[in-house]
Computed example of a mutant assay.
Amino acid sequence: MSTVVVTGGTRGLGLGLARALVEHGHQVVVCGTDPERVRAAGAEPGILAKVADVSDRDQLQELWQAAAGRHGRVDVWINNAGVSHAREPAWRLPSEQARRVVDVNLVGVLNGCAVALDGMAAQGGGHVWNMDGLGGDGRTVSGLSVYGATKRAVGYLTTALAKEVPDGVGVGLLSPGMVVTDLLTHGYSQAERERAARILSILADRVETVAPWLAERAISRARNGARVRWLTPGKIAWRFATSRFTRRDVFTP
Rank of each mutant, 00 (worst) to 15 (best):
M1D: 04
M1A: 12
M1N: 13
M1E: 04
S2R: 04
S2W: 01
S2N: 08
T3H: 07
T3V: 04
T3G: 05
V4A: 06
V4L: 06
V4T: 03
V5L: 07
V5W: 03
V5K: 12
V5S: 04
V6L: 03
V6R: 00
V6F: 01
V6P: 00
V6Y: 01
T7A: 14
T7E: 11
G8W: 14
G8S: 08
G8P: 10
G8E: 05
G8C: 07
G8T: 12
G9D: 03
T10L: 13
R11I: 02
R11D: 03
R11T: 10
R11P: 07
G12K: 11
G12R: 15
G12C: 08
L13Q: 11
L13W: 13
G14Y: 07
G14P: 04
G14S: 07
G14M: 08
G14Q: 08
L15S: 10
G16R: 13
G16S: 11
G16D: 01
G16K: 13
L17E: 02
L17W: 10
L17I: 01
L17G: 03
A18M: 00
A18P: 01
A18F: 00
A18H: 01
A18L: 00
A18N: 04
R19D: 04
R19G: 02
R19Y: 05
R19H: 08
A20F: 07
A20H: 12
A20S: 14
L21E: 01
L21S: 08
L21N: 02
L21D: 03
L21R: 09
E23W: 06
E23G: 14
E23N: 15
E23Y: 10
H24T: 07
H24M: 13
H24N: 09
H24F: 13
H24K: 14
H24A: 10
G25Y: 01
G25K: 01
H26E: 00
H26R: 05
H26P: 01
H26K: 02
H26M: 00
Q27Y: 09
Q27G: 00
V28N: 05
V28Y: 06
V28K: 03
V28Q: 09
V28D: 02
V28H: 14
V28L: 04
V28F: 07
V29H: 10
V29C: 03
V30I: 06
V30R: 14
V30M: 08
V30K: 13
V30Q: 12
C31M: 05
C31K: 09
C31I: 04
C31H: 11
C31D: 03
C31N: 09
G32I: 11
G32M: 08
T33Y: 15
T33R: 13
T33V: 14
T33K: 11
D34Q: 09
D34S: 12
D34H: 12
P35L: 07
P35V: 06
E36V: 07
E36C: 15
E36S: 11
E36W: 11
R37S: 15
R37A: 11
V38W: 12
V38F: 08
V38L: 06
R39V: 02
R39Q: 13
R39C: 15
R39Y: 12
R39I: 03
R39A: 15
R39D: 12
R39L: 10
A40W: 07
A40Y: 09
A40Q: 14
A40G: 14
A40N: 15
A40S: 11
A40R: 13
A41G: 05
A41T: 00
A41K: 04
A41H: 09
